[in-house]
């Protein structure tokens, strides 16, 4: 658990430190603006997959809120 906590703190900290030198200008967003580059592209596929894995496995989530609980036998 402690090792995990360290991981949770360190990765975002490193990322934030590097953030200011990363990125693009507004006119360089042609590829990032494409549907398939959205982090939640094919949202229905992701929602259906999340429902399966939530029902069949002991841990779930991470990407976002589950929304709409289920008994899931």
């Amino acid at each position: 658990m402690k090792a995990l906590l360290r991981l949770y703190v360190l990765i975002p900290a490193f990322s934030l430190a590097a953030c200011s030198s990363l990125g693009v200008e507004p006119w360089e967003r042609d590829l990032l603006a494409k549907d398939e580059m959205s982090l939640s592209a094919s949202a229905n596929d992701l929602a259906l997959d999340d429902h399966i894995y939530f029902s069949k496995e002991g841990t779930s989530g991470g990407r976002g809120f589950a929304g709409g609980g289920c008994g899931c036998n």
Binding site: S15, C19, V24, D30, L31, L32, L39
Partner: peptide, 10 residues
């Protein structure tokens, strides 16, 4: 935290 790395990478 969401970070754009470059024109091709997020």
């Amino acid at each position: 935290l969401t970070q754009v790395i470059n024109r091709r990478w997020i």
